[in-house]
C-alpha cells in the first residue's frame, strides 16, 4: 500500500452556528487518500463537496475532527497553515475570476513568489506551469483579461500548478466550459498527474468524466460520505446513486437495463467505445443469453 498523503478523521463543519441560518455542511467524514491517486468527488449541489475540500488546506477550520496531511495534523501549529497551502494546492470553481496581474506570467508567479522562491526558480515554474496547461510561452506577456474564457481558466489552473503542490485539488475545473474545452482541461489534468506523480482530487458533476479519469470515487450526500472506493465498486451501486439524484453515465444505464431485461452483459461500462465492443461481442454470439 502506498503512503497515505491525506486523511480526515470524523470531520464535521457547521455553518453559522447559533443563528437561524445554522446548517451542518459536512458530518463524520473519515477518508484516506493515497499518494498518486486521482480521486473524483461527486455529489449533488449542496452535498458538502466544496466545504470538504476547503478543509484539506485549512481555509476552513473544522468544527470537529482532524485533517492530516502527510501524517501531520494541519492545525497542530497554526502558523504552519500557509505551508500546508503550498503542499495542498486548491483551485476553486471558476478560478478565472481570481486573475489580477498585468501579465499572465506575473499572475502565475503569484503563488511561487509567496512561497519565497528565488527569481530563477519562479521563472522555471511559470514556464513549466504554462506548458502543463497546454499554452505556449507567447502567452506569458499577455494580459490575462485579454484571453478567452477557456484560456483564462487554464492560466488560473497553472497559477496553482506552479506551486508544485503534492496534492492538487480542483473544484469543478470544467464548469461552464463547452465539451471541447472540458475534454482539453481533463486531458491536461491527466497528463499533469502522469508527469508529476502528484495526487489529484477533482470535484465533478459529470459521472462520465469521473469514470474516465478517476482511480477512486468519493460520493457525498447531505454532508456525509456515502461511498468511497474504486470506480466499479461505486458505480455498481447505481440504484442508490440514482436515488440520490446523481445520474450514472447514459451508456452505463443502458447496460444496466439490458442486464435487467435478461441479457448477459457487463454493467461496468462507462464509455460508448467500451459499450460498442461489449455489444458487438454479444451480437456476434460470443455469449449466450441466460
Amino acid at each position: 500500500m502506498n503512503e497515505i498523503v491525506l486523511k480526515t478523521e470524523k470531520l464535521a463543519y457547521v455553518y453559522s452556528d447559533g443563528t437561524p441560518f445554522r446548517r451542518v455542511a459536512i458530518d463524520d467524514v473519515s477518508i484516506e487518500i493515497e499518494k498518486g491517486e486521482l480521486v473524483g468527488i461527486i455529489g449533488h449541489t449542496g452535498s458538502g463537496k466544496s466545504t470538504l475540500i476547503q478543509h484539506f488546506n485549512g481555509l476552513l477550520k473544522q468544527t470537529e475532527g482532524t485533517v492530516y496531511v502527510k501524517g501531520k495534523d494541519i492545525w497542530a501549529n497554526k502558523s504552519d497553515i500557509r505551508q500546508v497551502r503550498f503542499t495542498v494546492g486548491l483551485c476553486f470553481q471558476y478560478p478565472e475570476y481570481q486573475l489580477f496581474e498585468e501579465t499572465v506570467a506575473k499572475d502565475i508567479a503569484f503563488g511561487p513568489v509567496n512561497m519565497g522562491l528565488g527569481k530563477e526558480e519562479v521563472d522555471r515554474r511559470v514556464r513549466q506551469a504554462i506548458s502543463f496547461v497546454g499554452l505556449d510561452s507567447s502567452y506569458l506577456d499577455k494580459s490575462p483579461f485579454d484571453l478567452s474564457g477557456g484560456e483564462k481558466r487554464r492560466v488560473a489552473i497553472a497559477g496553482v500548478m506552479a506551486m508544485e503542490p503534492e496534492i492538487l485539488v480542483l473544484d469543478e475545473p470544467c464548469a461552464g466550459l463547452d465539451p471541447k474545452g472540458r475534454d482539453t482541461i481533463l486531458e491536461l489534468i491527466k497528463q499533469y498527474r502522469e508527469k508529476t506523480g502528484s495526487t489529484v482530487i477533482i470535484i465533478s458533476h459529470s459521472m462520465e468524466d469521473v469514470a474516465k479519469l478517476a482511480t477512486k470515487v468519493l460520493v457525498m450526500n447531505k454532508g456525509r460520505v456515502v461511498a468511497y472506493g474504486n470506480v466499479d465498486e461505486v458505480y455498481s451501486r447505481h440504484n442508490e446513486l440514482v436515488e440520490m439524484g446523481l445520474n450514472i453515465p447514459q451508456i452505463t444505464s443502458l447496460f444496466v437495463r439490458l442486464k435487467e431485461k435478461g441479457y448477459n452483459v457487463r454493467t461496468n461500462i462507462y464509455s460508448v467505445e467500451e459499450g460498442r465492443k461489449e455489444l458487438l461481442s454479444i451480437l456476434k454470439g460470443g455469449r449466450e443469453n441466460d
Binding site: 481555509l59 497551502r85 494546492g89 476553486f92 489580477f100 503569484f110 503563488g111 509567496n114 496553482v160
Partner: peptide, 25 residues
C-alpha cells in the same frame, strides 16, 4: 480564499504591506 490558497498573506505585515496585499483581491 482563492488568493489565500495561493499563499497570499493578508494578516501580517505593516500598513503598506497590507494595503499592497489587497490588490489581488
Amino acid at each position: 480564499n482563492a488568493q489565500k490558497a495561493r499563499g497570499a498573506d493578508l494578516e501580517s505585515g505593516n500598513i503598506l504591506q497590507r494595503a499592497k496585499a489587497l490588490v489581488p483581491i
